[in-house]
């Protein structure tokens, strides 16, 4: 217990001090990692904790990115209002799509999430009047306002702490969720759905809840990402973006909340640097996915930890 507390404090101190000490490009990479870490945790709630393997989370990433962008662009709403709009829209989409996908489960779930994703991507490419299509839309990031105070997201240090606070808040909320009785039931459903139902749990309701919570935080990640890039395009719906959380989870280990974050920290810089010198880096990702599930299905990190603990 005490060790853990020390670890938490240490991590916090490091994260806070890095904000003004890191060189620009590493700070920029860290900001990306913070944003995608939220996405990774959101996926873990869905797959790692509830056992629902989605291959279409980019839908919520994209919906929320535009949910934030469009109000700012067209009506100049302030940051908090647009963020709220983005999240509310994402939750509505989450409920509607979840209602169709969650009920059937298994292979149907995978297939339906893929279909949603591919169709939304197609729509985003085609409805240029709304999304800007492949070229996308740019906008001016609104100021961060707290009463009389205001900060500019054009300052990378501000962005660093802004995104970090969202990551920490998301972590605390999701940690709380999985430590609550609800979280226990989600795990039970992952472990044995039939048994959970036989002792009186409405499995559909819990699975839908996990789906919507996951959509919400994926959406938060997407909205923050569009805020950071001050841009969104059809690519924010790209199915490749739905593969990302699967890779993070595979590498970091499912059902641990922090594991997938480790996945982001390991994979994103890797993709970034490999991508610079080899444009076909996706084939490495593909090979990595095959390799991991065949040889190290508990996640590379999870397996390493197991080995260290055993030795």
């Amino acid at each position: 217990m005490k060790n853990r507390l020390i670890l938490y404090v240490l991590v916090l101190v490091i994260l806070f001090s890095l904000g003004f000490t890191l060189p620009t490009d590493m700070r920029s990479l860290s900001i990306d990692i913070f944003i995608f870490a939220i996405y990774a945790m959101a996926y873990d709630i869905l797959y790692g904790y509830t056992g629902q393997f989605s291959y279409g989370q980019a839908v919520f990433f994209g919906v929320a990115a535009y949910g934030l962008l469009l109000p700012v662009l067209h009506t100049n709403t302030n940051l908090w209002v647009s963020l709220t709009i983005a999240l509310v829209i994402t939750v509505v989409f989450g409920i509607v799509l979840g209602f169709l996908a969650v009920r059937l489960g298994g292979a149907y779930f995978v297939i339906i999430t893929i279909i949603f994703n591919l169709t939304f991507y197609l729509i985003a490419l085609d409805w240029i009047w709304l999304t800007g299509g492949d070229d996308g839309l740019t906008f001016r990031a609104p100021k961060i306002e707290f009463g009389v105070f205001s900060l500019s997201l054009y300052d990378p240090v501000v962005t660093y702490y802004f995104m970090l606070s969202f990551l920490l808040a998301s972590y605390l909320i999701l940690k709380r969720l999985i430590s609550s009785p609800i979280g226990k039931v989600l795990i039970a459903i992952r472990e044995n759905e039939e048994r959970a139902q036989l002792i009186g749990y409405n499995v559909f309701r819990y699975k839908l809840l996990a789906y919507v919570v996951s959509a919400l935080f994926t959406g938060l990640s997407g909205a923050l990402y569009s805020l950071r890039t001050r841009y969104a395009s059809a690519d924010y719906f790209n199915i490749a973006l739905s593969v990302q959380p699967i890779i993070w989870t595979l590498v970091g280990g499912a059902g641990t909340l922090t594991g997938p974050i480790v996945g982001v920290i390991l994979i994103n810089p890797l993709i970034y640097y490999i991508g610079v010198w080899w444009k076909h880096y996706l084939s490495i990702i593909g090979a990595l996915m095959i390799f991991v599930v065949i040889y190290s299905p508990k996640g590379i990190v999870g397996n390493l930890i197991n080995k260290i603990e055993k030795s």
């Binding site: 226990k184 795990i187 039970a188 472990e191 039939e194 048994r195 036989l198 002792i199 749990y201």
Partner: peptide, 19 residues
Amino acid sequence: VQVFPNLSVFDNIWLGVKM
């Protein structure tokens, strides 16, 4: 037999009581 395989005995029973 239908249990929650990767959970402890305690957790298995806890889930039923919680209901």
